[in-house]
């Protein structure tokens, strides 16, 4: 049985339907991303799974329980990082971790979770003295301290600099390697691509696409783009695909990139044509995402 099973869930706030019939499932040990623009219904969906919100209709099972009705038995097996990081400012890191550890029967040690989030040596510091990124990591450490089977991360790296982002990704990958199931929301394509085994693209409260990142790209039937600087299209050899001029460059969109590239480079060498800025770009998740979410 899957760890999360969601069927046709709906949730409205007044006249606005935030979640308009979402179905999804998450298997044990998977990292699943809910990807979508702001206001797509990701957070509402996750908060229904976390037990913060009550669905209007549909069925939800998380760890075999209904999160809205399940009490501390559910809470003790789930770790949460909410969209906004809120920690009591006056406590030291150690005091906060020890406090949270006391809520769980089988807690990990504060030292261990600080190691997991890569924040050793701040034990004695007051929370208010930590940087925003450090507080976010403490938030993550709190989510891990109860040794949960399932972890929800709601936009875990929003506002991070690129370095902090990479290390947060490493932490998430680390969680997966110790057997945790992770559900995360993000509006960053690269994040979903780097972390998720599977993803659900959500727009306007509905799932518009799901699968592994590569499968989604493949299914979109987008073609590989080959671009290079060259003044004149007329002189080009015939290639299998669509040839366009964009400014001073030539763009070839093709389903057979290897053949096309071979034709172009062969022609260039044979005719001693100097082509510059040669670039081959596979269809990206971003292209697919923009296409799906703008629809």
């Amino acid at each position: 049985m899957d760890i999360i099973e969601v069927d046709s869930v709906r949730k409205s706030y007044g006249d606005i339907e935030a979640v308009a019939g979402i179905s999804l499932h998450v298997g044990e040990g998977e990292v699943v991303a809910l990807l979508g623009p702001n206001g797509a219904g990701k957070t509402t969906t996750v908060e229904i799974l976390e037990g913060y919100r009550r669905r209007d209709s549909g069925s939800v099972s998380v760890l075999g329980m209904d999160p809205w009705r399940a009490g501390s038995a559910f809470r003790s097996r789930v770790g949460l990082v909410l969209q906004e990081c809120a920690l009591p400012p006056g406590l030291t890191v150690m005091e906060l971790l020890t406090l949270y550890a006391s809520y769980y029967e089988h807690a990990r040690s504060p030292k261990e979770v600080l190691g997991l989030v890569g924040l050793e040596g701040v034990e004695g510091m007051r929370v208010r003295k930590l940087s925003g990124g450090q507080q976010r990591r403490i938030d993550l450490a709190l989510a891990l301290i109860g040794d949960p089977a399932l972890i929800f991360l709601d936009e875990p790296t929003t506002g991070f600099d690129p370095g902090a982002r990479r290390s947060a990704w490493d932490i998430v990958k680390g969680m997966q390697s110790i057997g945790k199931t992770v559900v995360l929301t993000t509006h960053y394509m690269d994040e979903a691509y780097a972390l998720a085994n599977r993803l659900y693209i959500i727009a306007k409260g509905s799932v518009v696409e799901e699968g592994t990142p590569d499968a989604i790209i493949q299914r979109s039937q987008r073609r590989t783009r080959i671009t290079f600087s060259h003044g004149d299209t007329q002189a080009l050899p015939p290639v299998d695909g669509e040839v366009q001029k964009e400014g001073g460059s030539v763009v070839v969109e093709t389903d057979a990139p290897l053949k096309a590239l071979h034709a172009i480079t062969g022609w260039a060498i044979a005719n001693t044509v100097n082509i510059e800025n040669l670039e081959v770009k596979n269809p990206s998740l971003e292209d697919v995402y923009l296409e799906l979410t703008n629809a």
């Binding site: 913060y52 501390s72 003790s76 949460l80 909410l82 809120a86 920690l87 809520y103 769980y104 109860g146």
Partner: peptide, 17 residues
């Protein structure tokens, strides 16, 4: 103040009760 900053929501997500 705690409700507004989200500290209460964070507590609510734990088995504290």
């Amino acid at each position: 103040i705690r409700r507004d900053s989200g500290v209460l929501k964070r507590f609510q997500g734990t088995p504290l009760g």
